[in-house]
């Protein structure tokens, strides 16, 4: 599993772990010491991007934004674009 992380506001860590197969995201975990509510919203974000081509930034942004609105997810110090940027940096 590949891992990439960044430091967000307040010195918090945001990390994306992912397995890719044929450029598609297979397993995805988002971890760190950040604030996100409701907590279960993280699983909805992780599940939503599985199967997407990791370089398709527009599709990833759209699906994450859709899930954020559907689940009424609130994040502090980062947003769905930060997650997409991290995915782009995965080895």
């Amino acid at each position: 599993m590949q891992k990439i992380q960044t430091t967000i506001a307040g010195g918090k860590t945001l990390c994306v772990h992912a397995e890719k197969k044929d450029s598609k995201l297979e397993k995805v975990y988002i971890s760190g010491d950040f604030f996100l509510s409701p907590p279960e919203g993280i699983h909805a974000l992780e599940e939503a991007i599985q199967g997407f081509v990791s370089t398709d930034t527009q599709a990833l942004q759209e699906v994450l934004m859709y899930v954020v609105q559907r689940e009424d997810i609130r994040m502090h110090g980062f947003d769905e674009n930060t997650i997409v940027q991290l995915i782009q940096q995965l080895p």
Partner: peptide
């Protein structure tokens, strides 16, 4: 925290460990 990865945080399992519902 709720979003932390157990394997990244717990290197030595010497104490009781529990995951919070908060981050």
């Amino acid at each position: 925290g709720y979003f932390q990865r157990y394997a990244d945080e717990i290197k030595e399992n010497t104490h009781t460990v529990a995951r919070r519902i908060a981050g």
